[in-house]
Design a protein around this nucleic acid. Sequence first.
DNA 1: CAGTATTTTTTCGAGGCTCGAAAAAATAGA
DNA 2: TCTATTTTTTCGAGCCTCGAAAAAATACTG
Lengths: 411, 411
Amino acid sequence: MSVGIRHDDLRRRNRAMVISAVRRAGQPSRTEIAATTGLSHSTISAISSDLIQEGILAESKPGETGALKRGRPQVGLALNPEAAAVMTVVLSLNFLSVTVIDYAGQVVAEEQRRLDTLTMPRDELIGECTAIVRRRLEDPDLDVQSIARIAMGIQGITDSQARAMLWSPITPLTDIAFADILEAEFGIPATMENDCNMMAVALQWRQPERYRDNFIAILLSHGIGMGLVLKGELFTGTHSSGGEFGHMIHRPGGALCRCGRRGCVEAYAGNYAIWRSAKMMSEDAEPVDVGDADMRALAARARETDGPEREAYRKAGEALGFGLGSLFALIDPAPVAMVGVSAAAFDLIEPALREAIAQTAGGQHSKSISFDTEPNELPLIREGCAMRALSFVDQEIFAPGIQAKAGKHVA
Amino acid sequence: MSVGIRHDDLRRRNRAMVISAVRRAGQPSRTEIAATTGLSHSTISAISSDLIQEGILAESKPGETGALKRGRPQVGLALNPEAAAVMTVVLSLNFLSVTVIDYAGQVVAEEQRRLDTLTMPRDELIGECTAIVRRRLEDPDLDVQSIARIAMGIQGITDSQARAMLWSPITPLTDIAFADILEAEFGIPATMENDCNMMAVALQWRQPERYRDNFIAILLSHGIGMGLVLKGELFTGTHSSGGEFGHMIHRPGGALCRCGRRGCVEAYAGNYAIWRSAKMMSEDAEPVDVGDADMRALAARARETDGPEREAYRKAGEALGFGLGSLFALIDPAPVAMVGVSAAAFDLIEPALREAIAQTAGGQHSKSISFDTEPNELPLIREGCAMRALSFVDQEIFAPGIQAKAGKHVA
DNA sequence: CAGTATTTTTTCGAGGCTCGAAAAAATAGA
DNA sequence: TCTATTTTTTCGAGCCTCGAAAAAATACTG
């Protein structure tokens, strides 16, 4: 089944380990790397010397170590920003944004653009994406040699191979293999990532203490999305990006969901559902787009008076709570990050959510389940895509190195 | 984070690979192993020669290869049955059974015993388990030197470290660290496994074509349990055995579940729930144990006439369908095995189940979701425990070998 | 300011592992 | 009996990691 380990895999894996230790720790010394990886000092010395020679790592200036200790001072190793560059492309409702990121993770260029994703025909949507990428690639101000990888993020369902968007709420179009399109167009390896998965990846890098092995990122926006990390790894479905938390069934045969079915969590907790409920519309009413400003106004009104607005948030909390309860029945409770515009109204949602979750098997220790909120999803998605692309460069390009044997001829 | 690969890990991993190739394939030749593992012939030759010398593998008699080809005939490698033995202990409602299994997976001894698990006090229940194990261990007829591992399986929730039963429907007792108890008593490494997880493990060995990377085993019995395999690996929760499919919420605030909560899938699809519904009892009625014979009679009656019995099965199907739909929303659809006494009534359950699942996001291709049934769960649980224990011996005892260095002194 | 203690990093065999090539082994067909 | 064919073993080469010792770089001490 799984394949044996060759002798050369050893070096590749250990190189990968060193690179990722540096990416995680910032400026670790060789000694620190040896400690975290469990490899011997000699090995770390050999590997890091190779990596420096190849221009992947660089010794960072000393000084910053703060408290000076006795003995030879540690030399920090850092990622060489010029070793490579990657690009992120994030497509969301009526909005397209691109960033170029150096190997150390700093943004070196960006471009953003409004467009009407809901009505745009297929060719045009694809054209806008390739055009914005091309503009960035051909920008003479860009002083990176070449882009090693593109990570594209999109709201909606992607396939599990990270090649295509299968379905998205931002467009009626389906099955667009953006990864293949970008690769064909620019000859740069590309992937197509799900927005919520990228949020989870970003949280893992931003707050590794809180979001490490098991946690959940939930997008509370027009739709309800989820990124799930289990045992330190992003969880995806077997065929798709998976984790369609918003379409777990809350009430069989219940309110009309944007997906056309009934009773999904999203049909109670998505922006349109909260809006519909607050405006006392029927649960069968066709979902409509609600602007962020309108949602903020709605939340403000819900805080003011105990009317249908507050009740709408209560219902949303209930749906989310029962959904989370079912999820926790499957995977056990874990920290949750609530992201998106309605996360800013989490104070209105939380009481009903906790009450509901306490009634479920997964919510046995509902008080210990902790929530964190982050109203703005876009930066997270961008960061996640960036880290995703950089990790690819780390693992697939730099870890194997210059194919050992070929390199030896030179030396 | 994860640890570097040492030089000696290499051999250990490749030995493990060879052993598992033999366990999977039955009697593969060295050449076949080289092909499946991707390692070179020389390496396989070296490793298998070691393993044979250590008494772990044995060259099997030729002959059985069937069509004789030109050239040197392949020599099949097989597990040496006498290399080790393991024990399984399965505790289910009013029933305790133990088997001793040789290294090749054959049952060499067994004992079964009825007992009243529901009323038994803690000490007595533990005592019965240790006593039956002791009897088997001390049996003079048993011609295995020693038991290398005990895998105990139980209905209910276990912790994710496989040390303890946390909660079980077969006893009011909770938190019994059976693994620790057995280890302390007999000095043999032991684990405490969840019954449905073991069903899944057994299915993976029994039908690897159908149940390989992603599948679901659902126990339809008094309670509803699930074993889930994703990407070829058993899925467990972060703290517990996880996969409490039966306690996902089907109808918030709905029928009374055995767990004390309301609206769980099990409260509609467990034996007691079907019984309660068929007998036109209230959804609040206290769950009662229903014998397998009674359930079979109920199913027969449901097949005969379109009365409350049939309706009860319909409701069960609906609950299972919506539950599966929610599950499939998270992990994408996968083959399902229905196990247990009510799996024999799957013909009554399936129509409503498929109808419900078709109304969910996960059920988009509901027709392509395939179900298989297996009315008897006990043999599966036993087999799963056996394979689990044997895999442990493969990976943890035989793969590392005689600690290389220590062994070299002899040679 | 020289010497010592301390810590980090590099150097240098030793021992292991896998691999490819070639040899050896074992059999069917001619 | 010889040849072709296939499987398995043997053997040397090339890497890789490791431990120990050396080298490097700094703080402390008198």
